[in-house]
Amino acid sequence: MPVLEAHELVKHYGSVEALRGADFTVNAGEVVALIGDNGAGKSTLVKCLSGVEQPDSGQILFEGAPIRLESPVAARRLGIETVYQDLAVAPELDPAANLFLGREVRRSGLLGKLGMLDKAEMRRRATAEFARLGVTLQRIDVPIGSLSGGQRQSVAVARSVVWASKVVFMDEPTAALGVVQRERVLDVIRRVRDEGMAVVLISHNMPEVLAVADRVEVLRLGRRVARFTAAEATLADLVGAMTGALTQEETR
């Protein structure tokens, strides 16, 4: 069953048409790769579906019902989380603080009402979540900016996955990673899918797409031009659809 769908989304930035009637579907318990050449509209589509931008026209359906995503907060309330390409973490805060950013755990009783943080509880839960997701950090009490790029990315991925209940968008989650860290992130993606969540993966890495995705949707010039089952698709199919040599869906 589709958990999130987009119908004919249009989005302009000034005179630039980033989306020209884009469709998109993602089902619960699957990994969908969203691919396309630079400027195909992938990032804009994800922004529209995660509440960062509002489409100029078109419809977004969540579990079958039309919705408006006014803000990322509105999307998050529905269980939709996003891992941003530019690593939106606070580099001066430690991994636990980043994991709980905007969702801080307070102490119980009066002290909590006064706004006091329960740092120990957050650190404990963060350690448990990182362990569950296979994120290894040598230290949990150092600023995240002092970690390696891979570890920073792992924390960013973990932060979204921990809080998501329905859909996780990942914009190039493995772009900055080494081989081992990349495998770790792909493992996390599979684990999240097996828990019944929908994962939308944006990637330029075609072998990676074919390795981890269940389905592939291809955008070109702001429209969806093809859909594949990953098991049946070849590298040539994907590249053909991205470049326009192959089109499945009729243009409107």
């Binding site: 960062v52 990322p72 907060v73 998050r76 996003t82 941003y84 939106a88 973490v89 606070a90 580099p91 001066e92 805060l93 603080a97 950013l101 905007g102 969702r103 801080e104 307070r106 006064l114 706004g115 006091m116 943080l117 740092k119």
Partner: peptide, 24 residues
């Protein structure tokens, strides 16, 4: 140093965009 207000102060100064996306 001990409250949500303080934590958000650090977050805003560290990366305002990340703070905004986190719902602060």
């Amino acid at each position: 140093h001990t409250t949500v207000f303080g934590r958000h102060t650090f977050a805003v100064g560290s990366n305002a965009e990340a703070a905004r996306r986190s719902g602060i």
